[in-house]
Amino acid sequence: MMSSSARDRMDAFRAHGFFVVRAFLDDAERAALRRACDVALVDARARSVETGHSTPRISLLTDGATCFQDDPRALERIAGFVGSGRVCELLSGLSRPGEEDTPRLKDAHYYHEQTRRDWDGDWHRDSQFGQPDPEVERAVVATTTAVHFRVALEDDDRLEIVPGSHARWDTPDELRIRRGADRATPDMQDAARLALRAGDACVFHAWSIHRATYRRAPLRRTIDALYAFARPAVRQWPSPAA
């Protein structure tokens, strides 16, 4: 039987494309996870004049072999967290009919304050990446599911999202902004800012219209994992020989 809190989360996700779980991590859990993620950030900043300095995030899994070579236990902690039953429980039931209910981890990133400049991010749906044709992208939005799970390891109010946009296609103004020349405008209609306190978790649909603002201060430390729900594979059996 589904608990009321699980039902509330699912209802919020269906209606708005996101939900927040307050105090998902206690102080000790949060500090331990931040120490593990900071191993990668310190390494990235030491090895590159760009990554970790002019960029707002680093990959924790794609570059894990390099970033954690001196501390593999830190990578084990991160991988164990983003693959844990506790996290997957929050994602249960978020897939579309016809998709598998088991989420597949795509990558995990660590968002941090860059050291060189401030800027406002572009409004986007993750579905647009690699999809130059809006009509192809529209089909992706209408038929598939991908979600971000993130936890603020320090207070983080950088994410902005258009509630409900995961469940529909763009208005003319939204499409003009998202695929036009003014992608960083502050004038996205109906956008809401999600303020997370340290330890809070947020799950949001990757196809939602969203963006972040990037600042050198205050310090930012947020882990974000991306999951997708695949459609069940249909096995094709060979025809018997005549």
Rank of each mutant, 00 (worst) to 15 (best):
M2L: 11
R7P: 12
D11P: 00
R14I: 12
A15N: 06
A15Y: 03
F18I: 03
F18C: 02
F19D: 03
L25T: 04
A28E: 15
A28I: 14
R34I: 01
D38C: 07
D38T: 08
V42A: 12
A44P: 02
R47C: 09
S48P: 02
V49C: 10
G52T: 01
S54F: 13
I58T: 11
G64F: 01
C67K: 01
F68T: 00
Q69F: 06
Q69N: 11
D71S: 13
P72T: 01
L75Q: 06
E76V: 10
I78D: 03
A79W: 05
A79V: 11
L91H: 00
L94P: 03
R96H: 06
T102N: 07
L105S: 08
K106Q: 10
D107I: 07
D107H: 12
H109F: 15
Y110N: 11
Y111W: 14
Y111F: 14
R116D: 11
D118V: 06
D118K: 10
W119S: 05
W119A: 02
D120W: 13
W123P: 09
H124Y: 12
D126A: 07
Q131G: 02
D133A: 08
R138T: 09
V141C: 11
T143A: 11
T143M: 13
T143I: 09
H148E: 09
H148S: 10
D155T: 13
D157Q: 03
G164P: 01
R168K: 04
P172W: 08
I177A: 01
I177R: 00
D187C: 11
D190G: 03
A191K: 14
A195P: 02
V203M: 07
W207M: 00
W207R: 00
W207K: 01
H210E: 08
Y214M: 06
Y214S: 05
Y214D: 03
P218F: 02
R221A: 10
T222P: 02
T222E: 02
V234D: 15
Q236M: 12
A241Q: 11
A242C: 03
